[in-house]
Design a protein around this nucleic acid. Structure first.
Lengths: 138, 138
DNA sequence: CCGAATCCTCAGCGATACTG
DNA sequence: CAGTATCGCTGAGGATTCGG
């Protein structure tokens, strides 16, 4: 996530950091959470399998993000005490329910990506880059 | 956003970083974008007004995030060349259309926040904190 | 095979100061 | 009022290594 705790604590602003949406975005706004949830839509998977499914993820972040999801009750973790330990991860009901709003976002993304990209091109090719910096993007 | 460009470039993974959803999440996953969009649901506003509406935001991040949104074509920026310069920000059509999926997320957040918090409590009160670290949260 | 611990880099973001 | 430029801190997160 981005930071989450450095908040100076506000008072009466209508867009405070403690609104549920903000909270959830802090939770799923990181690089990997959504990808893991997406990977688990295909069914439960073991640690290594998840690593392969997502591939760009490091072992550390996979573990860390899975722990977060488990803590939130969105993902279940089942240890099979076999000889080489086997661990299965799966979406819980709550985790599965995330699919709805996430799909909405996904559809928006698909529907608007072209337009957004075009707008970016347009913006970047404008002729008033105030000298010094090419500081587009966040 | 989180990083977005350090990607090692993958090849055949089904959850590549270049999927539209991932892209959009990188865009709106930062600390302020969603808050600004939310603040503009109430109608257009000037720079200072936005600062007041959001309040926790620094001048730098407000400018930076607004630039990003403008670049993406989600927010329009209108300069009124009056004596003290006046600048109005407003959502574009595309920006407004974000309200739908964002509301879906919001509703999910509201519906599940309690459950998630409870799960966290539960998780944290488990009796196997492997010593050293209290490393919950992302 | 699953994961924890350590190290280190780099970029998000706030604070501050300066322009038009 | 509406920015832009610079500096410094902090923490996300990749690489690597060790344990069960």
């Amino acid at each position: 996530m981005v930071t989450t705790q450095g908040e100076p604590v506000l008072h009466g602003s209508p867009y405070r950091a403690d609104c549920p949406t903000r909270h959830i975005l802090d939770r799923i706004g990181d690089r990997w959470t959504v990808l893991i949830v997406g990977a688990l839509w295909d069914g439960s998977a073991r640690f290594s399998e998840l690593r392969r499914r997502i591939e760009g993820i490091s072992q550390k972040m996979l573990t860390q993000t899975l722990r977060g999801l488990e803590r939130d009750g969105l993902v279940s973790r089942t240890v099979h005490p076999e000889v080489p330990v086997r661990v299965e991860y799966a979406l819980t009901e709550a985790g599965s329910s995330l699919r709805e709003p996430l799909s909405a976002l996904q559809e928006w993304a698909i529907a608007h990506l072209g337009q957004v990209s075009a707008s970016q091109e347009d913006y970047d090719h404008a002729d008033q880059p105030p000298a010094t910096s090419t500081n587009h993007d966040t």
